[in-house]
Amino acid sequence: MTTNKTGKQNWGMVVDVDKCTGCQACVLACQSENNVPINTQERFERGRAISWIRVERYWEGNYPDVKARFIPIMCQHCENAPCEPVCPVYATYHNSEGLNVQVYNRCVGTRYCANGCPFTVRFFNYWEPVWPESFRNHLNPDVTVRSRGIMEKCSFCVQRIRRGVRTAKKENRDLIDGEIQTACSQACPTSALVFGDLNDNNSAVSKMKHDERTYKLLPHLNLDQNVVYLAKVDPEKKIESHSVESGSHD
């Protein structure tokens, strides 16, 4: 783990894929919290739906031994983020708290970052978001409504982090683990998503990330993500011995 963090916190998330049921609760909670535009039918048909967190579903095998695998994917908040160096206007950068930040007012919409992201978690606003007047009532006042032509992505609910930090400061105390929850981890009914401070050795995420099921997506890219996955367990899986091939490649 890198420890060159200057900030006090290093926000991270542990996703227990074994507990994810694919129920989409996180998707809607995120959408509601972060004023994500309504994905109209047209957006879906043109492959331009915006979803800061999504539950991907993969098929494995064929009927009747078919398995469906779910995996929630959101911005991985990489320490070595490929999206950051390509931005010509510094609209995305890494802050001292381990967040990969998207600054909407700086973004000019080159979409380089989206091309650079290996997880496809960055979404471009091809259209002005449209809400009927009355739906504006439920927009979250803590989150900027993104206009057309800019990039958006998961912010680890930075508005909740700010609010939590502010409250702790006001009450003159340290943050308590679990006090700050992202909308998705709050919603997740099976607690498959756990959010917290990776720098705090006693936090739930720190303890979970040392599990032997821990892995990160695309390890060969060495992105050092702050989102850690715990692998799915399938008691039906045949574990294949792999000693045979050990020396067969060079």
Binding site: A49, R69, T214, L217, V233, K237
Partner: peptide, 24 residues
């Protein structure tokens, strides 16, 4: 589905699955 590209951790392995007692 199809809105975003599949990003397998290893070609053909989108979601890492462990057998009983196997580590990641």
């Amino acid at each position: 589905e199809g809105t975003v590209e599949a990003r397998p951790i290893e070609p053909g392995v989108p979601v890492l699955v462990l057998g009983s007692g196997e580590t990641a």
